[in-house]
């Protein structure tokens, strides 16, 4: 055990919106937040990094398509390759998929509408920086707000992801049951979040950083940020670095 507070970097891109809430969430949960700028090749000594939500570069071309080439992303790729925890929330998830740090892609919602509401997500694996210490089957209430959150991947890629346990969260009802009416964007297999093979990079469309403060509503984001802070201080798994 260490007494040091985990340092969590939060990257701001032009058009990021939820960077400040992510910083607040890190601090509220007892971590040290390190604001990072997309144009710098420096992660500020962070133990973990969050790519926050928003509309980086105005979503031009495709969501996340321009942001993935930002200078900070070179550093982030090396950081991820070294096995350090990386979290992409909403637009951050889209950026990680564009950068091929996560499988699949996110396209316009099947319902053709922007969705902004609370959803329940079911934890599918404890093998990710947001679910370490949580139990598969646990249900967390968090908000979504996106126009392009439909997760898609090729059929064989989806099979591989399911086989390797890369699905981290699925949209569900409050009891954890799946159903089309609980899937806000038509995502394949109700997928709300995924991880990479190594298990240190995770992305999700819902916003845990908006579900921290009990005065403002449900607090499904608390266990996720607690898991992230715990993961941030864990030594790098042997063999990855």
């Amino acid at each position: 055990m260490t007494a040091r507070a985990p340092r969590v970097g939060v990257v701001t891109f032009p058009g990021s919106l939820d960077d400040r809430d992510a910083v607040r969430a890190v601090r509220a949960m007892g971590g040290e937040a390190v604001p990072l700028w997309h144009g710098e090749r420096d992660l500020g000594g962070a133990d973990a990094v969050i790519l926050p939500g928003g509309f980086s570069y105005g979503d031009y071309l495709r969501t996340g398509a321009i942001a993935r080439f930002a200078p900070v992303m070179e550093e982030l790729r090396a950081f991820a390759d070294a096995g350090r925890p990386v979290v992409g929330i909403c637009n951050g998830f889209q950026i990680l998929c564009e950068a091929s740090l996560l499988p699949g892609a996110l396209i316009r919602n099947a319902g053709r509408r922007f969705v902004c509401r609370w959803v329940d997500v079911r934890v599918e694996t404890s093998l990710s920086p947001l679910t370490a210490g949580l139990v598969a089957g646990e249900v967390l209430r968090v908000p979504v707000k996106h126009g392009e959150g439909q997760f898609v991947a090729r059929g064989d890629e989806l099979d591989r992801m399911e086989g390797d346990g890369l699905v981290v969260f699925r949209y569900c009802d409050p009891d954890g049951a799946l159903g089309a009416e609980h899937n806000p964007n038509g995502s394949a297999a109700a997928i709300a979040g995924v991880r990479n093979e190594a298990g240190n990079v995770v992305g999700l469309m819902p916003h845990p950083e908006h579900a921290i403060d009990p005065d403002l509503g449900p607090t499904g984001g608390q266990p996720m940020f607690a898991a992230l802070l715990q993961s941030a201080l864990e030594p790098v798994a042997s063999g990855i670095r």
């Binding site: 071309l61 495709r62 398509a65 080439f69 998929c97 699949g104 892609a105 898609v152 090729r154």
Partner: peptide, 8 residues
């Protein structure tokens, strides 16, 4: 590399 995302 940029104009398209070959995944989709």
């Amino acid at each position: 590399r940029l104009l398209s995302n070959p995944v989709i």
